[in-house]
């Protein structure tokens, strides 16, 4: 196995996070599913990348492996030069806490914590104080000012997702992963969240990797990576709805 690989680079310099020959097999024997079949891809620092593909193409699996939430069968995941696949759970935990942020489809806030406690949760766990300037700015940008003392059950879906976004951003992680963040939102709230993601890449230089199957959502990204049957199937730079839809359709035809 190749331990020392050359840093994966992209047009804009070294990647914030990258997959090298990543393979993920679920199950064994007859029922084995090759969810990722040798994926090599890099995600540039400070950019907003969308991962697209038909349902079951391995988008979520790729994201989980990139984020150190799941272990790969083979291959490497490089986060700022560290190979996450080689790390014990303790290091992965620390990486998730300090270097990675998450936004999930189903909000995933802790029901018993207030919005503000949910936002600072990863920092709390790391025993760090939030950067007050950044926190203020996030709360203002995300329009959460009046909602900080509320419990998740007292917030709308859009508000909950914005809280989750603030939580992901407040620790200034190297990468923010978002898995279908607009899947459970109405179109207006969805558009707001997507705009916020785009702005944080643009204004804060935040690296963002978003999984989606919605061409409209992908159009907010700087770049779209296409996935089909666990393999890379092309990419689009500066996408718009038309180009993404066409690419998706050609994927469907090729199958």
């Amino acid at each position: 196995m190749q331990r020392q690989s050359a840093p994966v680079t992209d047009r804009n310099g070294p990647a914030a996070v990258a997959a090298v020959d990543l393979v993920k097999v679920y199950g064994a024997g007859d029922t084995a599913v090759r969810a990722l079949d040798g994926v090599s891809v890099g995600f540039e620092r400070g950019r907003f990348t969308a991962i697209m593909g038909p349902s079951g193409s391995g988008k979520s699996t790729l994201m989980h492996c990139l984020a150190g939430l799941d272990t790969a069968t083979s291959g490497q995941v490089l986060l700022g030069g560290t190979d996450l696949t080689q790390q014990p759970d303790r290091v992965l935990t620390k990486a998730r806490r300090e270097r990675i942020g998450f936004v999930f489809q189903s909000f995933n806030l802790l029901p018993q914590l207030t919005a503000s406690a949910n936002i600072t949760l990863p920092l709390d766990l790391a025993g760090r104080e939030p950067d007050p300037v950044l926190l203020d700015r996030l709360i203002t940008t995300l329009g959460l000012g009046g909602r900080l003392g509320h419990l998740p059950s007292e917030l709308s879906g859009g508000q909950q997702q914005r809280v989750a976004l603030a939580r992901a951003l407040v620790s200034r992680p190297e990468v923010v992963f978002a898995d279908e963040p607009t899947g459970n939102l109405d179109s207006r709230s969805g558009a707001e969240v997507l705009a916020l993601l785009r702005d944080s890449a643009r204004d804060l230089g935040q690296t963002i990797v978003m999984v989606t199957h919605d061409p409209g959502a992908a159009a907010y990204a700087d770049r779209v990576v296409m996935l089909a049957d666990g393999r890379l199937a092309g990419e689009i730079h500066q996408p718009d709805i038309t180009s993404v839809t066409e690419a998706l359709q050609s994927l469907a035809v090729n199958r």
Partner: peptide
């Protein structure tokens, strides 16, 4: 278990 998963995802250690 969903809550536990979330806590682990945002960086709570196993022992924590």
């Amino acid at each position: 278990s969903r809550e536990s998963g979330l806590l682990r995802a945002v960086g709570m250690s196993r022992s924590g």
